[in-house]
Amino acid sequence: MQIIDLLQSMMPMVLFYSAPLIFTAIGGVFSERSGVVNIGLEGLMVMGAFSGIVFNLTFAEMFGSLTPWLSLLVAGLVSGIFSIMHAVAAVTLRANQVVSGVAINMIALGVGIFLTREWYGSGQTNSIVEPFYTRSVRFLSDIPIIGEMFFSGIYYIAYIAILFSILAWFILYKTPFGLRLRSVGEHPMAADTNGISVTKIRYIAVIISGFLAGLGGATYALTISLNFGGATISGQGFMSLAAVIFGKWHPLGAMGAAIFFGFAQSLSVVGRNFPILADVPNVYLIIAPYVLTILALAGFIGRAEAPKANGEPYIKGSR
């Protein structure tokens, strides 16, 4: 029974921690499946968190309870536009994609804090007044055990994250666009000879990843941190990248991995209260996602095979 108690009190928290990771990880799947490595996820999340918070603070009075949803949308759009920079560098200018990603991370943090200081006079913004609130789903929350676990005291945004990953799976595996995207990431020359524009597909994929990472960053900011500062996003982007790999570059796999990482994170928070875990030092739970990713990559937990052309700029006419 103790396990069920544990799960009951933890599930809402798990979903709460994993929602930002799910969004960002799906974004990562899009970008990497098209052959563009996106280490810049962290920076794109920073951009999302920043623009989400700024929009929320500025327009809270005008839009009332609608504000967080609009903030989310704005954050996605801003990050999507911002990610074009990565696309230009990685696709058009054939830059080293990892380096360009690192530059994205630095620029995002620099711009975010620079503007925060400009507009709010200090290193972090005020707390927002219109965050997301937890809700219980009517009727469903009355179901014994499951109702308590999955449908009460929860952010709707978590369901949306899960819906998005199912949608991403549909787009990538059941539509012509998805097939093209994947083919560009596996063998760009073959795709090109079949009349698919490698450049166009990769641009779209990177922008989608920017949009989703923006949603992820804003979700984190609007549910967990409630303001923006230099340390708001610290590693969630890289953790999402880990989720992409752990989930073997598959949207549903990435979602599963993100939920698992959320689980590990919340265990490190609430684990104290449960006798089975009380003796385990916190640090093991905190580093678990990272260790597992390395093990997954090393092939101890099933082989993680990256898209063939991942990280390689496509130059027409080269073999």
Binding site: V99, A103, L109, I113, R117
Partner: peptide
């Protein structure tokens, strides 16, 4: 001027070095 300006400058420098093709 906020000191973060320098972070932006450094990031832009890397961005251009990485995009040396341009």
């Amino acid at each position: 001027v906020p000191s973060e300006l320098v972070e932006i400058i450094i990031a832009v420098i890397i961005f251009f070095v990485a995009s040396s093709y341009m």
